[in-house]
Simulated scan of single mutants.
Amino acid sequence: MTTPDTFTAQMAIARSTGRWRLYVVIYGELVFEWPEYVFDGATVPTVQDRSRALDALGYTPVDGTVWDWTEDHVPGDDPAGPVYLIASARVREVAS
């Protein structure tokens, strides 16, 4: 759950490029593009890689947070279809 001073960062593999992308979900503001970081390659980014990406975007994980993984089926809800993994974590903006 987010609070007014926290956001949700999500990471998933882009189906079009096969590269992992991390983005910070920002609701309630006029935002045309959410802050996003695209990783090189198809290897799952490590926790340290994710922290560096968040830092580059101006965010940091909330103390004690862990990355939660969810799976979805592509396309739709076909249980025989490929699995699509989505990671999420609570983050906050780094004070400037």
Rank of each mutant, 00 (worst) to 15 (best):
M1W: 11
D5R: 08
T6F: 04
T6I: 07
F7M: 00
T8C: 09
A9W: 05
Q10L: 13
A12S: 13
I13M: 15
I13Q: 11
A14P: 02
A14D: 14
R15L: 14
R15I: 09
S16Y: 10
S16D: 14
G18D: 06
G18V: 01
R19H: 12
R19P: 01
R19V: 00
R19C: 10
R19D: 06
Y23R: 15
Y23E: 11
V24T: 02
V25Y: 05
E29R: 15
E29D: 12
E29N: 11
L30G: 09
L30H: 13
V31G: 04
E33V: 12
W34N: 11
P35W: 05
Y37S: 01
V38W: 07
P45F: 00
P45R: 00
P45G: 00
V47E: 08
Q48I: 02
D49I: 02
R50V: 00
S51G: 10
A53G: 00
L54R: 03
L54V: 04
D55P: 00
A56G: 14
A56S: 15
Y59E: 03
T60S: 05
D63R: 04
G64C: 07
G64N: 05
T65M: 07
V66G: 12
V66A: 15
W67G: 04
D68V: 14
T70Y: 11
E71G: 06
E71L: 14
E71F: 14
E71N: 12
H73Q: 13
H73G: 07
G76R: 15
D77Q: 09
D77N: 10
D77K: 07
P79Q: 05
G81K: 12
P82R: 13
P82H: 08
Y84M: 09
L85H: 10
L85D: 09
I86V: 15
A87C: 06
A87N: 03
A87F: 05
A87S: 12
S88L: 07
R90E: 07
V91P: 00
R92E: 13
E93V: 12
E93A: 14
E93T: 14
V94A: 03
V94H: 03
A95F: 13
